[in-house]
Design a protein around this nucleic acid. Structure first.
Length: 617
RNA sequence: GCCGAUGUAGCUCAGUGGCAGAGCAACGGUUUCGUAAACCGUAGGUCGUGAGUUCAAAUCUCACCAUCGGCUCCA
């Protein structure tokens, strides 16, 4: 077991705490102090500082709930008022072991047992004593404004076979305004929640009868999906991709051969087996091999496509792209809206290429990623390079030299892109190293979207070849890649990124035509026909409502253009244009509106409308 | 899957053992209005599902389902 290092790290890491982190970590201790008084016999595990605050993992005799928070917070406040100094000391390892054994703190005992040092750090504030490397603030009076946020279960050392502890999360800041800003941001994020907006804008829904994690898309949601997918298809065709189709199910034996069955079976839907027993001439294994699986990934199918034909070195790279919907049997507890589903449509591609083409292909891929994500205004990236732990032969089979070459290539290619990246050893897929790209959205939150994965295993496993210049058979390399990740998840991210106010080209309804009274409906309909003719998606709000109500509803639906039409407009073939930003542009000739809206839409501009000086004739 | 919370009308929510409620949406009518909510009326619910306790269950108990917040995993 190498896990204890993690815990040791939690303690060691605190040495490098910034002042805020130090204060947050101290707040965790103050919370522990309060918990110790309110829940006698409570056992403590670890309590580090995190991005926006702190947590402490504990085991208590009864579940702690948010209803307990006011009492805990009050006790914490008491400790803060008393300004208990944080007293540091070094204890002999055995003394500490005995102390924590006597005080029935098995998790602390376990942590000490895994520390190599002869001496361990102890911090004390008021009535509370804890194993801790520190550092801390001078006294509890230096604790900033804080708030307990939630309780959650967390496995001891993140291991699902070990006890489930209760993790109490809190947030802490140095200034009151910072806490308020943070809480406000949480509120903002809540307003942008794609599950909420998805309902409000009639984009998608879920049904218990259909099943958990299986989203159903309403017409407006499907429109957005299609627009995103079409854009992806058009763009990647420009980059030399060809689209293929490989259906939704395949035999179990295909996934056995690809080794996915071995590595990911628990995340695949149960197999579909014929309702018959194996007969005398058929083994149980063969019965299973011939049963069917919902396709959980495309690679084996694309490899099968590749193998169906002979390939010359001249053809490579061959880039197969597919938007088939995949099914993964994700654990129930991890399903979440569109971002974590059981049926997902990857913008998947497998590139078969010669080893000497890897670097150039990688550069093209990075350009493609920049172009696609940039179109949605996602331009701030962070890259994580997942490398193998080459000592782990269980997970990483194959030729060590090949792996090393791949890692070197990938690093060199990454360096050429100018991306900042961090490496994570032991995180690579079983078939090769990979690069994941995290993009920041409008609220500064990071989402893992694009992935580029080199595959060193499957070409050999499936005995793929191409005929080289020398007339002999050679082994190609495979690159797996997805830019959006999955259509569903990407749509969820975009909803939150745009807060439902999609760019014009992506808006399911681009213009709402609002007749002021019933006698303007005729003109509204004629105007709509003209928009329809050039492909601008619009509707006429012909309800018996006041114009104000129609404006409000269109506004709430985040429809980019509101075209109010009354006597004046009908008379001179114009519309009164209002933007969803509340801006009232005023009278615009219908023809001119069409021209500009079309231009903004077809160029996939993120602008709503061109400013006067540019637009004016 | 595990820990905790939640589940009442399409949506947001009130109702904590004694007749199932409100606002918005929907539907019908009246109104025909110049840039974020006109007025009146009607209809809508096996209170997530199933079992139990009770004279009586939306309310208490148990199981299951789903959702939310985490943990874990992510081809």
């Amino acid at each position: 077991m190498s896990m204890p290092e993690d815990v040791a790290q939690e303690i060691n890491a605190s040495v490098n705490y910034t002042p805020v982190q130090r204060m947050r970590h101290s707040t965790a201790h103050v919370m522990a102090e309060a918990l110790q008084e309110l829940f006698p016999g409570i056992k403590f595990a670890i309590g580090p500082a995190i991005d926006d605050g702190f947590y402490y993992d504990v085991e208590a005799s009864r579940p702690i709930t948010p209803e307990d928070f006011p009492a805990i917070e009050a006790r914490m406040q008491e400790s803060i008022t008393k300004k208990h100094p944080f007293k540091q000391s070094k204890w002999d390892r055995n003394k500490a072991l005995n102390y924590f054994k006597e005080h029935n703190q098995p998790y602390k005992v376990e942590i000490i047992e895994n520390l190599a040092d002869q001496e361990v750090g102890i911090y004390e504030q008021g009535p509370f004593l804890d194993l801790c490397r520190g550092p801390h603030v001078n006294n509890t009076g230096e604790i900033g404004p804080f708030k307990l946020m939630r309780v959650a279960g967390a496995y001891w050392r993140g291991d699902e076979h070990r006890p489930m502890l209760q993790r109490i999360y809190g947030t802490a800041w140095q200034k009151k305004e910072e806490l308020e800003t943070y809480l406000w941001q949480l509120e903002e994020a809540k307003k942008r929640d794609h599950r909420k907006i998805g309902r409000e804008l009639s984009l998608f829904t879920f049904s218990e009868d259909v099943g958990p994690g299986l989203p159903l898309f309403l017409p407006r949601g499907e429109m957005i999906r299609r627009l995103m997918e079409t854009y992806m298809r058009e763009t990647q065709e420009r980059y030399g991709y060809s689209h293929v189709w490989t259906g939704n199910i395949a035999r179990v034996r295909l996934y056995k051969q690809s080794k996915h069955w071995e590595h990911y079976r628990d995340a695949m839907f149960p197999k579909m087996q014929e309702e018959r027993d194996a007969d005398e001439n058929e083994s149980l294994e063969s019965l299973e091999d011939n049963s069917f699986e919902l396709k959980p990934m495309n690679c084996p199918s694309h490899i099968t496509l590749y193998k169906s034909q002979r390939h010359s070195y001249r053809e490579l790279p061959i880039r197969y792209a597919e938007f088939a919907t995949l099914h993964r049997f994700e654990k129930k507890g991890e399903l979440s809206g569109l971002t974590r589903v059981r049926s997902l449509t990857q913008d998947d591609s497998h590139i078969f290429l010669r080893p000497d083409q890897v670097m150039d292909e990688f550069k093209d891929l990075v350009n493609l990623i920049r172009e696609i994500l940039g179109a949605y205004g996602l331009t701030d990236y962070r890259v994580r390079l997942s490398l193998p732990d080459l000592n782990d032969h269980e997970k990483y089979h194959g030729d060590v030299a090949l792996w090393e070459q791949a890692v070197t290539d990938l690093k060199a290619a990454l360096d050429a892109t100018g991306f900042n990246y961090e490496s994570a050893e032991g995180e690579a897929a079983f078939y090769g190293p990979k690069m994941d790209l995290m993009a920041k959205d409008a609220l500064g939150r990071e989402w893992q979207l694009s992935t580029i994965q080199m595959d060193l295993f499957q070409p050999r496993n499936f005995e793929l070849e191409y005929i080289g210049e020398d007339g002999a058979a050679h082994r190609p390399v495979i690159i797996h890649r997805a830019i959006m990740g999955s259509t569903e998840r990407f749509m969820g991210v975009l909803i939150e990124h745009f807060a439902g106010a999609f760019p014009v080209w992506l808006s399911p309804v681009q213009a709402m035509i609002i007749p002021i009274t019933d006698r303007h409906i005729d003109y509204a309909m004629r105007a709509q026909k003209q928009l329809q003719k050039v492909g601008i998606r619009s509707e006429v709000d012909s309800r018996s409502e006041r114009m104000n109500a129609k404006v409000r509803d269109a506004q709430l639906q985040k429809i980019p253009y509101m075209l109010v039409v009354g006597d004046k407009e009908a008379e001179n073939e114009s519309v009164s244009l209002r933007l969803r930003t509340n801006e009232n542009v005023g009278a615009v000739p219908l023809a001119k509106f069409i021209e500009q809206a079309l231009q903004i839409s077809s160029s996939r501009s993120l602008n709503l409308w061109l400013k006067e000086e540019n637009a004016a004739q």
